[in-house]
Nucleic acid binder design. Sequence first.
DNA 1: AACAGATATATGTACTTTGCATATTAGTGG
DNA 2: CCACTAATATGCAAAGTACATATATCTGTT
Lengths: 243, 243
Amino acid sequence: MNETDFLKDYDPSAFQRPSVAVDLVLLGIRAGRPAVLLVKRDQLPHAGRWALPGGFVGIDESLDAAAARVLREKAGMGEAHLEQLYTFGAVERDPRMRIISVAYLALLTEQAFDAALGAKPALLPAAIHAARAGETGGPVDMLSPDGEKLTLAFDHADILATAMLRLRGKLDYSDVAFALLPEFFTLRQLQDVHEAILGTSLNKPAFRRRQLDKGWLMATGAYESGAAFRPAELYRFQRLMAD
Amino acid sequence: MNETDFLKDYDPSAFQRPSVAVDLVLLGIRAGRPAVLLVKRDQLPHAGRWALPGGFVGIDESLDAAAARVLREKAGMGEAHLEQLYTFGAVERDPRMRIISVAYLALLTEQAFDAALGAKPALLPAAIHAARAGETGGPVDMLSPDGEKLTLAFDHADILATAMLRLRGKLDYSDVAFALLPEFFTLRQLQDVHEAILGTSLNKPAFRRRQLDKGWLMATGAYESGAAFRPAELYRFQRLMAD
DNA sequence: AACAGATATATGTACTTTGCATATTAGTGG
DNA sequence: CCACTAATATGCAAAGTACATATATCTGTT
């Protein structure tokens, strides 16, 4: 490394720096389909379009902290499963200036999803129609509650497609499905979440057996109430000790 | 106000911005073990420690382009499998200033690995001893060629652990293993790569059948030469058309 | 030329996992 | 008491996997 390289590497003011933002995919299950919460842009660029909620990363704020702050501020929400998704850094992704966006995936229970809508009425719950064929991260269609097809701002459609792909990939070896369910849930609810994310229907006995064999589920002995038929047992998710 | 006017009025200096860098995990297989190429830091902080090669992201350079540039400049290498790994953004990860690092995983064939060492003799090939138990991204030990245990600079040990975890996770459903092999290879070489990454030995007939059943391998009809025993057939990787 | 040694390649079998059909059970509402 | 619905349980075939064992093909030696 010669002296010029060294100075370039060491002196931060020698470089013009990009801005760094976080964008959140606030994802839940509504009416048997994945759904995402969007905000309407009221400023240029892309004024009037729907976008993922986001915000700039503070100079003294970690990426995770920035994502948690946006979750609080934009969705009025304290707790949710939050994981980093991917970092989008194309030069022209924002016409204003260079912005690198670290995308996060937030998983909301149905209750949390509705609570966010109540706390922030400007949020739009959009249904996600992810073609089953789009295994490669292919296009994801978004429909507003009145069935209108939405075009997202910036590269947010790519972010959403990445989120769906990640979710599908992690579904059966991680605990993401449980982040979309309340503390106590039935096996049918668990299967509904899987089917919503995968976009397919699953064989019920096989699904039951596989889930129970994983050893992640703890039967509570309690049962759901209010059903007009045999009530299902309630389970809760219990993390594995060692593996 | 149209978009052009907006851009004129926009003040990009309103926020104090972090620096953004890319760090590369240059990974290959050497002597049946995963190995990584490191650079020695000659300046504070962490002077004298080994680190992943990296560099700052230019203001007109995409993240992928920055990673490719670092691959060229620091490893003297044009071509390699390069994929984004994770973005590390803890506030105190670099004591000089706020630096957000987008980590990339570069997979090198044995030939490319040796070529990098030849082109940049300052690089250190360090053997990775990733405890099989460390499924959760646990600690990864690094040994210099003379068997000395290395402590990496900054949070680079975390980055490396993330890389190994990602590699293991993707091994049997993606094509990463082939990025570590030359164009033509035997089934034994493919198995050696898998065993090196997983840190376990695999059953040979079962491995063969599974790999061939995937339909990713094209038999060439050619055979290896120079072996003092029955020569193995050479295969090449062929991507699936549709799925 | 025959054979030992080494490793590739092939096959047979038990075991595990999975998909699917079919029963049985436990609730509600007539 | 019965119809209805969905939860739960069971049985079986098909597919996938681990492992032992057999066969094929090369080099080098005697």
